[in-house]
Amino acid sequence: MKVSIAPLAVISCGKKVKIVSIVGGRGVREHLLDVGLNVGVELEVLGQGGSGPFLIAVKETRLAIGQGVARKIMVSQE
């Protein structure tokens, strides 16, 4: 099975992915941690943002995530 790593920003709607790393400063990382986005966490893209924010599901939490942040979250998909 091919595993590719890409920023969350390019993942299309309906895909389930796993966070492999978070690029970026301490501020972004801590904030993502606070809402449960940590390395190893699985998430599902519910709505692809296009030019606007993403809608994602992390366990029972639904989050809206801006473009900038989505580019900093590296995910792997199978």
Binding site: G27, V35, L55, R62, L63, A64, I65, G66, G68, K72
Partner: peptide, 9 residues
């Protein structure tokens, strides 16, 4: 800009 992260209850 700071990150936009918003929980959707």
């Amino acid at each position: 800009s700071a990150p936009f992260i918003l929980e959707m209850p």
